[in-house]
Amino acid sequence: MDKLDLTKAYKMYYNAPSKPQLVEFETIWYLSIVGQGDPDSDTFANATEALYTVAYSVKGDYKKQELDFAVAKLEGQWWVDGDPKKALEVPREEWHWKLLIRMPDYVTSDRVEEARKLAAAKKKDLKVIADIQYESLHEGVCVQMMHVGPYSTEPETLAQIEHFIEGNHLRYSGLHHEIYLSDPRKTASGKLKTILRYPVQTIEVVKG
């Protein structure tokens, strides 16, 4: 039985160059969970565990139907109240996030709900499993770039993205989106690879 690997099936989605590029994506389905707080907090850790627990429960269900797949990379959307460009100026406890794991196109909401219930029954102490949702996201045209290094140096990469957006008469039209290609538990911080992505729209330019 072949196992679907989304990172190989959707190479553009899971790859980015070392300089900003324009890409476009169709509607994609994800398991998701929303929260607020420091990414080093127990709240964030529990949300991540719950998301993976349900993802592997969905995988197990489909594997029985000979539709096995590799659980995809963790992703996150990030925002703060007020000006999103000032995210690093507010305490990390005030950060909002939505964690995501992409699902294959054949996964249905009914099967996700059954898998979520099964996961909740197995891990009764992990109450936030109840908060896992199955939703679609259509970001459309995006600017993305590969960030290599610790998360703390992301502003350097984001500055390049902002310069590209301004120089090409674009404007932000969605949330800051990250895809974590490396496992920070197994990878040195200087070698971490993270795709940074922003949905954008064209600004109409009036020529004189």
Rank of each mutant, 00 (worst) to 15 (best):
F44K: 02
K64V: 11
E75I: 02
A119S: 05
W78V: 01
Q144N: 09
S152R: 10
E89Q: 09
D83N: 08
H163S: 14
A115M: 04
K86M: 08
K86N: 07
D81K: 10
L99A: 08
R102H: 07
Q77T: 12
L181Y: 02
T194W: 00
G37T: 01
V148F: 04
H138P: 08
V80H: 00
E204N: 11
T27N: 12
V90H: 02
K8S: 11
M146S: 02
E114T: 15
L22P: 01
Y56E: 05
P184N: 01
S57F: 06
V34E: 13
D42T: 13
W95E: 01
A72M: 07
A45C: 09
M145H: 03
P199K: 01
A87E: 11
E94Y: 08
W78I: 00
G37H: 00
W97M: 07
K193I: 03
P91H: 06
S182F: 05
E135Y: 05
V112Y: 04
M145K: 07
A55Q: 07
V58C: 09
K59G: 07
N15S: 15
K11P: 09
L170S: 02
T187K: 07
T53D: 09
D131N: 12
K85D: 14
H169I: 04
Q21G: 10
W79C: 00
V58M: 06
A50W: 08
H96D: 06
T48A: 14
P91D: 09
W78R: 00
D2L: 14
K186F: 10
A121F: 09
P17F: 04
K191Q: 13
A121S: 13
F69T: 04
D42P: 09
S57W: 07
A120P: 04
K63G: 12
L158R: 11
M146W: 06
K73Y: 10
L6P: 01
K19Q: 14
Y13W: 08
P17E: 07
I165P: 01
Y134M: 10
L6H: 03
Q133D: 14
G140Q: 02
G208D: 14
G35A: 03
D105C: 10
D42V: 14
D110N: 13
Y198W: 10
V54E: 02
P20D: 00
D183G: 03
L31M: 00
L126C: 04
T157S: 13
F25P: 00
N46C: 12
A47T: 09
L181N: 03
M146H: 02
F69E: 02
F44I: 02
P155N: 03
A159Q: 10
T43E: 15
M145D: 02
V128G: 04
H176Q: 04
R116C: 07
D42Q: 15
P20I: 01
V58I: 09
K85Y: 13
M12N: 15
T108R: 11
P104E: 09
G174I: 01
Y56G: 05
D105A: 15
L51G: 05
E204Y: 11
W97G: 02
D110E: 15
Q36N: 06
S41W: 05
G167V: 06
V80I: 10
K123S: 12
M146Y: 05
L126D: 04
D2N: 15
D40A: 14
K63W: 11
V107E: 05
F164E: 04
W79H: 04
F25D: 01
L22F: 02
L158E: 14
Q160I: 02
N46Q: 13
D110K: 13
K19H: 14
L67R: 15
Q36G: 01
